[in-house]
Amino acid sequence: MKSLILQTATRSLVAVLLLFSIFLLLRGHDEPGGGFIGGLVGAAAFALYAIAFDVPSTRRMLGIRPQMMIAIGLAMAGGAGVISLLAGEPYFGHLWYHTDLPGFGEIHLGTFLLFDIGVFLVVIGVTLLVILTLQEE
């Protein structure tokens, strides 16, 4: 399906959607948002691109195999738990690191963020794996 309107709109929408997905990812934990919902929005961006254009150019834009994204995501999510294990906590016992960043105020980083980014990548990977497989052929 080649629609000029959709293609033109998609060009600008993809950027907005991806930005929004990262916003949702970082907003998570303390406020509504998080890796899963962010990942779905991110996957929607790529899916929209695949509908407006075609699958090969979507794969090129993605730049990485969906399988590889799943692997990296799982490694980050699972690895977040292993860090806690190494620190003598139970699996997924979350560790926090608080710091003051000039200009931003206090920020706290935790293994939870690593887990969430992992989930984000897995969700994008799985969704795209299925959508691109279905759309090909």
Binding site: R65, Q67, M68, I70, A71, I72, L74, A75, G78, G81, V82, L85, Y91
Partner: peptide, 14 residues
């Protein structure tokens, strides 16, 4: 953790 890690590493060597 072991099967998860194995699966992930195997996937990285896809």
């Amino acid at each position: 953790v072991i099967p998860l890690a194995t699966a992930v590493i195997a996937m990285l060597f896809y």
